[in-house]
Write a protein that binds this DNA or RNA. Structure first.
Length: 263
DNA sequence: ATTGTGGCCTGCCCGC
DNA sequence: TGCGGGCAGGCCACAA
């Protein structure tokens, strides 16, 4: 599913759209338009603009507008099945949990450029969305660049499960269910641990493994390419010690962890 | 404010 | 072979 590594790949793909004038925006399903702006308003705001930058904040992709839309921002979210295509090319090769079918009916939002190319958000389950001027201030520090002090602040003073806290986009932006399981597994931390109970040494360990995991996944090309992932199925075993993994719900999400080495 | 829960959304897989 | 229930989870509205 799209977590930070996938959105980063989408961002790089979207850089190929910078400076190309938008002829018009096509809204495939009006429910895909989020926030305060109506589909009509969004279409009007996008007509004739160019984009000056493609940025990523957590799982939010932001295109900064230039020209007629100077100062406005286009936010793209991908839910768990959303993918980005530019001129027919995909941002990532494979998206776990999402269909691989080439189904134009799933094109929920399309930017047509005057040069004939197009940028498409394709999302079968429509859990993503497009929003004019999304509020980025509600997002926590980006997981790829978070400092140890920022991570500590995101986790301390809360009795909520550490996994829940890691996935809270208001505290830390970019970590989803798969990456959270992978990072906690590598850090030998039980996902159910009270967030405030982590020691300074555990904070350091978690920060280290978060960085290494994200860089591994960026290099491998997806959040589904972690070391734990192949065993993240009922009956799966810990790749480190062979213990059968525990499967349960933590923070409302299916979680797998090793009862032998995660404490 | 913080935290938990349910709902949205729909393709896919499994068992009957 | 077809059918239906359960599952997947990012995000948001809502309740306590």
């Amino acid at each position: 599913m799209p977590e930070l590594p996938e959105i980063e790949a989408y961002r790089r793909l979207a850089e190929g759209a910078l400076g190309r004038p938008v002829e018009r925006a096509v809204i495939g399903d009006r429910r895909f338009v989020r926030g305060q702006s109506s589909p009509r308003h969004l279409r009007a705001a996008l007509k004739g603009v160019t984009f000056s930058a493609a940025r990523r904040h957590g799982k939010l992709l932001v295109l900064d507008m230039a020209g007629p839309g100077q100062g406005l921002h286009l936010g793209l979210r991908f839910g768990m099945t959303g993918s980005l295509l530019l001129d027919g090319r995909a941002g990532v090769e494979h998206l776990v949990y999402a269909s691989e079918r080439d189904e134009p009916a799933w094109d929920r939002f399309t930017l047509r450029f005057t040069d004939g190319g197009r940028l498409v958000v394709r999302d079968p389950r429509m859990l993503g969305g497009v929003e004019l001027d999304p509020d980025e201030s509600v997002l926590g520090p980006d997981a790829l660049t978070v400092t140890p002090a920022q991570l500590r602040r995101a986790l301390e003073h809360s009795d909520v499960a550490v996994k829940t806290r890691l996935m809270d986009q208001h505290r830390l932006a970019g970590v989803g269910n798969l990456i959270a399981d992978e990072v906690l597994w590598r850090s030998s931390l039980d996902p159910r641990r009270r967030s405030s109970s982590l020691t300074p040494a555990e904070h350091r360990r978690l920060h280290h493994h978060l960085q290494v995991t994200l860089h591994d996944m960026l290099q491998r090309g997806g959040s589904h390419l972690g070391d734990l992932m192949p065993e993240r199925v009922p009956g799966g075993r810990c790749p480190r010690d062979g213990t059968e993994l525990v499967r349960s719900t933590v923070g409302g999400r299916t979680s797998y962890w090793c009862p032998a080495h995660q404490h």
